[in-house]
């Protein structure tokens, strides 16, 4: 599983950071920073899905390999 994060669509709702802090940090202005590069560790797949499912701006996409 991979995460595709669209910085242009992100408006800093911070839902991803609250639900999956292992996968998303926030910058000084509150926009998301994707912390994983490449495959999501298996134990975090559920959280990745949760972050994607709760982003109001549809800025996070899950790509199943």
């Amino acid at each position: 599983m991979k995460i595709k994060y669209d910085r242009d669509a992100c408006q800093g709702h911070n839902r991803c950071y609250m639900l999956a802090p292992e996968l998303f940090d926030t910058d000084d202005e509150g926009y998301a920073i994707l912390l994983v590069d490449g495959d999501v560790p298996a134990e975090l797949e559920e959280k990745a899905q949760l972050a994607a499912d709760n982003c109001p701006e549809f800025a996070i996409e899950i790509i199943e390999s």
């Binding site: 408006q11 800093g12 709702h13 949760l50 499912d53 709760n54 982003c55 109001p56 701006e57 549809f58």
Partner: peptide, 15 residues
């Protein structure tokens, strides 16, 4: 509720 893309804080640039 697990899937909740609510818009209480708005959408777009004025979030």
């Amino acid at each position: 509720r697990q899937r909740n893309r609510h818009t209480a804080f708005g959408l777009g640039i004025h979030r």
